[in-house]
C-alpha cells in the first residue's frame, strides 16, 4: 500500500511548480494556469487526507467539491478580466498592465 507521504510530497511538488509559474510567467493567462496547478495540488491533498483518515467522514471530499466550485468561479472572472484588458490595452503581458502602479 502507498504511504500518505508519497501523496503529500507529490502535491507539495505540484504546488511549488504552480507557484513558479505564477511568479515567473509574463502572460496573464499563463499565470492563471499556474493558479490551476496550485488548486489541483490542494485537491490531491484533501482527497488523500480523506482516504487516510476515516473514509466514513466525507469532509475531505466536500472540501474538494467546494474547491472545484471556487476554481470555476475564479477562472471565469479571471479570463473575463484578461479579455477585457486585452480589448482596451491590446496586451496580456502582466508587466505592461501598470496603470495603477505608483
Amino acid at each position: 500500500m502507498i504511504p500518505l507521504s508519497w501523496y503529500l510530497t507529490l502535491s507539495a511538488a505540484l504546488f511549488s511548480i504552480g507557484m513558479f509559474g505564477v511568479l515567473a510567467r509574463k502572460n496573464a493567462v499563463a499565470i492563471l494556469l499556474g493558479i490551476e496547478l496550485m488548486l489541483n495540488a490542494v485537491n490531491i491533498n484533501l482527497v488523500s487526507f480523506w482516504r487516510y483518515n476515516n473514509p466514513v467522514l466525507m469532509d475531505g471530499q466536500v472540501f474538494a467539491i467546494i474547491v472545484f466550485a471556487v476554481a470555476a468561479a475564479e477562472v471565469a472572472v479571471g479570463l473575463a478580466l484578461v479579455i477585457s484588458i486585452y480589448r482596451r490595452r491590446n496586451t496580456v503581458v502582466a508587466d505592461e498592465i501598470d496603470l495603477m502602479k505608483w
Binding site: L4, S5, M19, F20, L23, A24, Y52
Partner: peptide, 28 residues
C-alpha cells in the same frame, strides 16, 4: 529568483509535513 522561492517552498513544505506524526501512515 522565482525558481529559488519555489524550491524553498517545496523544501519547507516537505520539512513541515515530515515532522508530523502521521506522515508515513498507511491507509485504513
Amino acid at each position: 529568483l522565482s525558481a529559488a522561492i519555489a524550491l524553498l517552498t517545496f523544501g519547507g513544505l516537505v520539512w513541515l509535513v515530515s515532522g508530523w506524526g502521521g506522515f508515513t501512515k498507511a491507509a485504513p
